[in-house]
Design a binder for these strands. Sequence first.
DNA 1: GACAAAACTTGCGTGCACGCAAATTTGCGT
DNA 2: ACGCAAATTTGCGTGCACGCAAGTTTTGTC
Lengths: 218, 218
Amino acid sequence: METRPTGLREQKKQATREALRAAALRLALERGPDNVRVDDIAEAAGVSPRTYNNYFSSREQAIVAAVTGEREARVAAAVAGRPADVGLAEAVIEAIVDQYTDPGQPGCDALLLITTRPALRDEFVDAAAAIEHPLSDAIAQRLGHTGRHTTARVLAASVAAAVRLALREWLQTTAASSTTSGLVLPSGSLPDLLRTTLAPLTPALDAAERQAGRRPPQ
Amino acid sequence: METRPTGLREQKKQATREALRAAALRLALERGPDNVRVDDIAEAAGVSPRTYNNYFSSREQAIVAAVTGEREARVAAAVAGRPADVGLAEAVIEAIVDQYTDPGQPGCDALLLITTRPALRDEFVDAAAAIEHPLSDAIAQRLGHTGRHTTARVLAASVAAAVRLALREWLQTTAASSTTSGLVLPSGSLPDLLRTTLAPLTPALDAAERQAGRRPPQ
DNA sequence: GACAAAACTTGCGTGCACGCAAATTTGCGT
DNA sequence: ACGCAAATTTGCGTGCACGCAAGTTTTGTC
């Protein structure tokens, strides 16, 4: 669905990106995140240190990317994939909750690592901003091409902002409880938090849908 | 209203901050933004280079701060100051439009400088994120202490996101037109852009207000 | 199959953000 | 007026992001 440039080149690029992600996560888990320099990651991935910064613009980005994977694209696909007769608000909220609900433990130790270091927490939260553009496209598609393109972008940006609020809150309480009690990961509350922060946006999503839907008739 | 620490200390801090802002803007206008190093700004302000980074965490921040001033606080104050009988949505939108409507030309040449350099544009847009917390407090106050505190934060974050979208669009078209035609600053369209991006959030703001208002009765 | 253009990698140099700890300044009680 | 404690400034060292200009690999064309 997305293969603009020819094959071999893109293939190698993804391989390098993946190698960097894997190396970054492995080294961070082995030695602790503060004892890993960019040069180490590059060396472990078999590329030049300069090349690292062609793929990731900060040291933390590779580690977080290894955990989050391609969540943004999956969220957008999930929104587009919901049946057309459910409300936009419900479609968006459920799609997001689904994607952020832990599927097994793809990196439970990695999450614990992220919650520990402030820099990694910030990067993890900021990474959620990447859902904005794909989500904007998905919402625009649901609203139909008649509606204002700007509306979709505003709604997507608002949803992304709400998600970031939820993640911040989640990481904060998580970090607090792991210092007081002891190393607990209350992952169960994340879906609830997401629903809570997304709820206030429901009226805006519904209104946009109603307005777009009213276009063809009358 | 806000003088937690004793006077003289805070006074000097603000003086230093202002000196850095002024020096940064002046030098950027004189030599062009790329020919100004952090050391130059610090020297012009009479402080150590290291001290600069105690006040601003990036080189661009001081320049942008010199232009934007304390806009965040004024937005929050403007929201709080609107009469209680106008809708929340209207209060927020009008307050923001007012504050972003150019009052004379406090830095027309400075704006031209900012639109030129991508790094400064980014910093200018990101600076709008600072309205989030003050605005959150102002909205919470209008919703009354009975409402969910989270709702106010989500709405404030969404509004901030919408504002950033408007600014981005504005700077983009501005930059485009200054290369094609010649150095035009279509500042007149900013209010319209802001209303357009904020409009989709009106239903959410109204709904929150209705829900909070329904608390005391019934 | 060879060639030219485009895309990617690499090395280098520069300026920068920031942790840390010593030195300095400010606030306040006595 | 004096001195102690807290806040702030400063110098230093480290790692990092990124522009730039080669050098290298891939792609599409003749």
